Structures are given as C-alpha cells and as structure tokens.
Simulated scan of single mutants.
Amino acid sequence: MVAQVSYLIFDVESVADGELVSRIRYPGMDYSPQDAIATYQDELMETRGTTFIPHTFQLPVAVVVAKVSADFRLVDVVSLDEPEFRPHVITQSFWRGWDAYKYPTWVTFNGRSFDVPLMELAAYRFGISLPKWFRGDGYKAPRNRYNTAAHLDLQDVLTNFGAARCNGGLNLVSQMLGKPGKMDLTGDQVQQQHNEGNKKAISDYCRCDVLDTYFVFLRTRVLTGNITLDQEIQLVAEAKQWIEERAPDCEAYRDYLGHWREWANPWAIEVDPKADTDDVPESATDAAADAPVQAVSSVDSESPGTPSVDAAADPKTDESP
C-alpha cells in the first residue's frame, strides 16, 4: 500500500541568469553572461557585503522534494529532472507534483522569502498555469502568509513570523539536533559549481538540505504538540534506517551519514540495575516507547491547503539575500 503524502518538504538551488542580468543591469555594454554576473556580484559585495544575486534574476537548477506521510514518516526523496536538471522541466514537475498529490502542505526553511517566490516566478517565466495555488480565498488563500496549511515555513515557526531572528539559520537548528547541517558545499558556491558543470553536486547538496529540513520539521512537530518526543525519536530512527538502506547507491546519503551525530537526549536516565525500580522516575523516552506514532492535525479541515487523505544560492539563513 502506497503511503498517503500529506507534506512536501523541498529546497531549491538556483543560479543567476547571466543573459538577463546583462540585459537588465548593463544594457548596451555587451557584457557576456559570465561577466555580467561577476560585475553584479562585485557591486553587491561592495554595497551589501554579499555576492548573492536577488531571486528575480535566478533560475532553479536543482529542486529536491521529500514526500512525507500524514503520520510524519519519510516516504521518498526525489531530485526533479535528474540528471538533466532543466529549469523549465523542474518547474513544471514541481507544481504538477503538488497538484497530483492533491495539494499537500509545502514545508520549507525560509521558503516564504526565497524558494516559493522563485518557483512562482519560474512558473511565470515558463508559462505554467497555477490556478489552485493562486486562487483567491481571502485569509484562506494558499499564498496568504499565515496559511500554514498550504505552506509551513519552519523559520516562521521558530521566529514567530519574523518577530525574532534565527541567526545561524538551517545550519544552526539542524546541528542542534545532531544533524549534519552544512558540509562540503555551501550556497555561495552553487554558481561556480554550475559554471563548472557540476550539476549533480548541486543536487546532492540540495538533497542533504532537504534531509536537514525534514528532521527540523519533526522537532517542530514536538514543539507544537503534534507528536511526542518519543515518537519523534522513533521517526528519526526510521528515517536514518531509510537513508542507510539507500546509501550504497547514493553518495549524498553516504556523506550525510558520515556527518551524522546522535542527538544528546537530556531526558534519558541511566538506571542502576541494583536500585529499587519503584523509586526511579520514568524517563521521557520510556513514557511512550511502545506507542505508535499518531498524526495530530493542526489545521482547519476546510483550509484550501489542507493535505488530502487521497494524496498518495543559499538563502537558508535568517537574513534574506
């Protein structure tokens, strides 16, 4: 039986469209795409202290999506249009997949300010119609900033929709849980990797970011009361086994496991076997050790982005580029 997919956790890696940068930023100067990008990055570094080009000039070159069931189990992880990585095909697959699974909840880290706007603009660029995503239902509209049934941005969860800052971003909150966070490649290297033709390396980097996001998602479900800590520990163990089973055929998974650290559970209690067990307090991990994971809905069942039961650059910091 195929698991029902209720959440699509995704991450986007993108590069600047050099021809567009040349036409818009430097008209009449006959810059090559590479020269236009380099010039723009130099200007941004001088004025803003970053080389990150705004998403409006960018194209998706890798999108990885993790399919997650209603009970928060990892079902699958796919890199769209691999190994060709064509931006227009990636974009079409991304939005059609959301339709095919009957509008599950998108889950991102800082995706509200980068990943989703980039994919919307890519759909605009390539002439892809998104009537379900753009439907106007007032505060229930999928694109409403506070509609977490349609799009759950985990940075919003941790910052109260930007009222606080999440200094350190996804890398920080992943490593709090013992997960790898940033490894060999970083977002500011994606443009150079793409220029050198290393598309698979970009996809692998994106894949690892999605795994980090999944584990952060699980901990936020503990935070919001959807699952217990014991259930999260169980789900993490299952997901790790899922990754291990696929690691022989996937370099990204092998690298991810190589940087894995077990989360130090402060609630775990070592019990002296000679002690009177009646005097030993029950540990948090023992409390529901045998309890099955139960999904707890946190959204209005009438919200337009509510997952259907029939549904089978690096901006991941607190600072917007």
Rank of each mutant, 00 (worst) to 15 (best):
F161C: 05
N171G: 00
L154D: 01
N167S: 14
G178A: 14
Q189S: 10
L172W: 06
R165Y: 11
M183H: 11
R165P: 00
G178C: 12
Q191Y: 06
M176Q: 11
G178N: 12
L172C: 06
N171A: 06
A163S: 10
Q189Y: 05
G187H: 02
L172K: 12
M176D: 05
M183R: 15
K179N: 05
G162T: 10
L154M: 14
N171W: 01
Q175K: 15
Q175N: 14
L185I: 15
A149V: 05
V173R: 06
N160V: 13
L154W: 05
L177P: 00
Q192G: 02
G169R: 06
M176K: 13
T186L: 12
L154R: 07
K182F: 01
T159C: 09
G162S: 11
V190F: 02
D156N: 14
D188P: 00
G169C: 04
V190C: 04
C166R: 14
N167G: 11
M176N: 08
V157C: 08
K179T: 06
Q189T: 07
L152G: 01
Q191H: 09
Q155S: 08
T186C: 15
G168Y: 03
T148A: 12
L172M: 12
D153Q: 04
T148R: 15
G169L: 06
S174R: 04
K179V: 03
Q189H: 10
L177H: 03
D184M: 11
G178Q: 13
K182W: 03
G181E: 07
M183E: 13
M183K: 15
H151P: 06
K179A: 08
C166V: 08
G168K: 04
V173W: 01
G178V: 11
R165N: 11
G169P: 00
D184Q: 12
L152N: 08
N167R: 14
A150T: 01
A150R: 01
K182S: 05
G169F: 03
D153M: 02
R165S: 12
L170H: 00
L172N: 07
P180D: 04
N167K: 15
L158W: 10
R165E: 10
M176C: 10
D156S: 09
S174W: 01
Q155E: 14
Q189A: 12
K179R: 15
A164C: 08
Q189M: 14
F161D: 07
L154G: 03
K179W: 10
Q192I: 08
N171I: 00
L170T: 00
Q175Y: 08
Q189G: 04
A150S: 13
M176G: 00
L170K: 01
A149K: 04
L172D: 03
A164V: 08
A163R: 13
G169E: 02
L170Y: 00
P180R: 09
L154C: 07
M176E: 07
D188F: 12
Q189L: 11
V157T: 09
Q155N: 10
Q192Y: 05
V157K: 07
D153S: 05
T186G: 15
A150P: 03
Q192S: 09
D188C: 11
N167I: 13
A163T: 09
N171F: 00
H151A: 06
K179G: 00
M183S: 13
T159E: 08
G187D: 01
D184W: 08
G168A: 06
L158T: 02
M183V: 15
P180Q: 09
N171H: 06
G168I: 03
S174T: 01
Q191W: 02
R165V: 04
Q175V: 10
G178M: 13
D156M: 09
